[in-house]
Computed example of a mutant assay.
Amino acid sequence: MLKLNNTVNGDLTIYGFDSKSNDALLKREKNTAEPYVVAWNFDFETGGWGQGHYFSHYEDAEKFYHDRIYEMEKPTKAEQIKEAELLLLEIEFEAHEIKCDKEMLEELYYNVIIKSDGSTFLNEIDVEDCLDYYFEQKERKEMEAEGMEK
């Protein structure tokens, strides 16, 4: 808990702050019916904020604050789809007894699946194209390594 005095919003008590979003859980110390605030874009220098939700009870404000922070941290649908696609690729490669690290899976995802048709929905042709790409890259790296040895 941190106290700020003489801000543009009077004296404040800060119960929580999220550095990613600059959201804060505050209490305005001046006498008001809704002293608790979940403030968006809180500014420590001035004690001001862009907008907020106001509450009479701390418990209600705390729940809203934590729910808001949790929602902001959840991956987007696109991120969830990408993670599912990468997992499917990893499973397909393991079925061919090929171990791929995360970096290679990302490379396959962007250089084969996304570039092929812009779709992020994995299909049988994408898997075959990924296998081809993988073996081409592996061969290229082996040839480069052989060239360096000479």
Score class of each variant (00 low, 15 high):
Leu2Val: 06
Leu2Ser: 03
Lys3Ser: 06
Leu4Thr: 02
Asn5Trp: 03
Asn6Cys: 01
Asn9Leu: 07
Asn9Gly: 05
Leu12Val: 04
Thr13Cys: 13
Ser19Leu: 13
Ser19Cys: 08
Lys20Pro: 02
Ser21Tyr: 00
Asn22Asp: 07
Asn22Met: 07
Leu25Arg: 07
Leu25Ser: 08
Leu26Lys: 04
Arg28Cys: 12
Glu29Asn: 15
Glu29Ile: 09
Asn31His: 12
Thr32His: 02
Glu34Pro: 01
Glu34Gly: 00
Ala39Phe: 03
Asn41Pro: 00
Phe44Ile: 01
Phe44Asp: 01
Glu45His: 05
Glu45Thr: 08
Gly47Asn: 00
Gly48Ile: 03
Trp49Thr: 02
Trp49Val: 05
Gln51Asn: 10
Gly52Asp: 01
Gly52Gln: 02
Phe55Lys: 09
Phe55Gln: 11
His57Leu: 15
Ala61Ser: 05
Asp67Phe: 13
Asp67Pro: 10
Arg68Ala: 09
Arg68Gly: 05
Glu73Gly: 08
Glu73Ile: 09
Lys74Ser: 04
Pro75Asp: 09
Ala78Gly: 07
Gln80Ser: 11
Ile81Cys: 01
Glu83Val: 04
Glu83Arg: 12
Glu85Trp: 05
Leu86Met: 14
Leu87Arg: 14
Glu90Thr: 12
Glu92His: 13
Glu92Trp: 06
Glu94Met: 09
Glu94His: 07
Glu94Thr: 06
Ala95Thr: 08
His96Ile: 03
Glu97Phe: 10
Glu97Ser: 09
Ile98Phe: 05
Lys99Met: 06
Leu105Ala: 04
Glu106Ser: 15
Glu106Val: 14
Tyr110Arg: 12
Tyr110Cys: 07
Asn111Lys: 15
Lys115Arg: 10
Asp117Ser: 03
Thr120Lys: 14
Asn123Ile: 00
Glu124His: 05
Glu124Asn: 09
Val127His: 02
Val127Tyr: 00
Asp129Val: 00
Cys130Ile: 00
Asp132Phe: 12
Asp132Met: 11
Tyr133Pro: 01
Glu136Leu: 08
Lys138Leu: 14
Lys138Ser: 10
Glu142Pro: 02
Met143Glu: 13
Glu144Asn: 11
Gly147Phe: 03
Gly147Ala: 10
